[in-house]
């Protein structure tokens, strides 16, 4: 029986985030949360593997209690089990502490064959948690997977996107992959799934249940420290090139030559 673990992160809906130019801060008031878009591909891939090979899909996330709604959505899509790693001491974790905490959670889930992450989260944009988690779990990882060619008999063969093309890579299971949008088209939840999600409780594990070293979680366990956050200057308003297409084109070529970029 295949056991796939999918890691998801809840992020603010970017289209709703705006910047208050007066205070120069992010306006988060009433901004809805969504599952990190890349993680949707991870969930979908997990579900497809389950459909093809049988087995179970667990979704796991570290975050505050409101992340339950995202985990429930994954259950509505078809995941079998949802686990939230939540503890006020986990707050402020960087990718190092997050990878450690997730690894503790996944170990507690028991035997597993494959861990799937999204390529990166759209808020932090680092893509570091996947490889870090694989390291914590002591399993190989492949990033930017755009297709799973083969899975079985303790081995995995995937296509990985790299600059200018792709690589065919094989490795042993258990392993971790991070996936890109090209890999599939995520499904919407089903109604039966939604009703099941309403009934399925989300398992919540805190620091003690996970047996975490308090020195390695949250802010304390983080190696990096954000010392300052600010919003960049808005782009200066541009210039609309006037005239007929020929004149517009001529002006553009002149401008670009003037800047020395062509």
């Amino acid at each position: 029986m295949l056991h796939v673990v999918v890691c998801i992160k809840q992020v603010p809906e970017i289209t709703e985030v705006s910047i208050d130019r007066r205070t120069n801060t992010l306006v988060r008031e009433g901004v809805p949360s969504i599952i990190n878009p890349f993680d949707m591909y991870a969930i979908e891939e997990g579900l497809r593997l389950k459909e093809a090979h049988g087995g179970t899909v667990s979704v796991i996330s570290m975050g505050p209690p409101q992340v339950e709604s995202s985990l429930k959505e994954a259950v509505a899509m078809g995941a079998d089990r949802a686990v939230l790693l939540s503890d006020s001491r986990f707050a402020g974790a960087d990718t190092l502490a997050t990878a450690y905490t997730l690894a503790q959670g996944i170990r507690r889930l028991g035997q597993f064959d494959l861990v799937i992450c999204g390529k990166q989260a759209i808020d932090g944009d680092t893509g570091q948690v996947g490889p870090g988690l694989a390291e914590e779990l002591g399993i190989p990882h492949v990033t930017y997977v755009r297709r799973i060619r083969e899975l079985g008999d303790g081995m995995l063969r995937v296509e990985r996107m790299v600059e200018g093309g792709w690589e065919l890579i094989s490795t042993t299971l258990p392993a971790l992959i991070s996936v890109v949008k090209d890999i599939n088209e995520p499904r919407l939840p089903s109604l039966k799934g939604i009703m099941r999600a309403k009934r399925t409780p989300v398992t919540v594990w805190g620091l003690e249940e996970l047996g975490c070293d308090p020195q390695r979680v949250g802010l304390t366990g983080s190696a990096t420290e954000v010392v300052r956050i600010w919003t960049p200057e808005p782009r200066e308003s541009g210039e609309l090139l006037q005239g007929d297409p020929e004149q517009q084109a001529r002006q553009l070529v002149e401008r670009l030559r003037g800047l020395g970029v062509i």
Partner: peptide, 23 residues
Amino acid sequence: ATAMGRSLAPRIATRLKTGLTAD
């Protein structure tokens, strides 16, 4: 921050338990 760099660096940083800042 290439495909290779973004794959190797977090793996290494985690093993060394040190900080890594992306991009």
